[in-house]
Amino acid sequence: MKKYLFIFKSEIMTNLQYVFNIFVGFIGYFVMLFILFNLWEYLYSDPNELINGYSMTSMMWYVVITEILYSVVGGRTLCKKISNDVKSGNVAYNINKPYSYIGYSVSSHFGNMFIKFIMYVILGLGFGLIFIKKLPNLSLVGIIFVLVSSFLGLLISTLLILSIGLFSFYIEDSGPFYWVYSKLILVMGTLFPIEYFPTIVQKILVYTPVYVVNYGPAKLFVDFDIHKGIGIILAQIIYVIIAYLICNHIYRKGVRRINVNGG
């Protein structure tokens, strides 16, 4: 475990040199929030009205949180990096080191997300406080649940995106797969909570990554209750195991196909 912490730490040290880049990323985040805030203000004629169980302020806080998680993961860059690693044969040079490639990639990506996460949380909450003003009622237990669930959500995203990236062992470019995945996650669960979809679709969505990746932590933030909290975290733990097994399977099968010519 110590080695993975060291990989995590080394990635943070590297990322500290690029703090300015993270600030640039905020521009997109703020524009997105600004559009969504206006949309919800327009849709809610009366701020006290409830649509699908969400008040206007809780809907706004919901997107503040889901957008933080969506932006922090930086899925496109991760998928591209893994895909390039596989295609260029770079992945081979990690094989003869005493760590697991998946463990390495996950800890390295968490190092990547760490500073981004802290900065997005501070600025996202600040932005929310300025425009929405009132924070949802959240106890200390609630905050802990939201943090744990955010961590697990990010872990599931990372493992799923890694699996998609590792698909490059079998196909030329895994980019289109990531595009489909990211758009599904963006529309379902990030921009709109599960409750906004027809009942039959909702029943399916609770079994998909949509429920555990961004929806779970954001739902707990805006409307915390301990039973829901335990349910979401349990579902996330099951998903971490499933996502890890998928990722590991793709890697193990794929690594035997490595073709490193020349060099």
Binding site: K2, K3, F6, I7, S10, M13, T14, Q17, N90, Y93, K97, P98, Y99, G263
Partner: peptide
């Protein structure tokens, strides 16, 4: 591998050596 870098380019050699030490327990 002379044609492949295994060091972390943004870190110092010292930090790199510490990193390699850690991954080899």
């Amino acid at each position: 591998f002379g044609q492949k870098e295994q060091l972390w380019t943004h870190l110092t050699p010292y930090d790199n050596f510490k990193f390699f030490g850690a991954i080899y327990d």
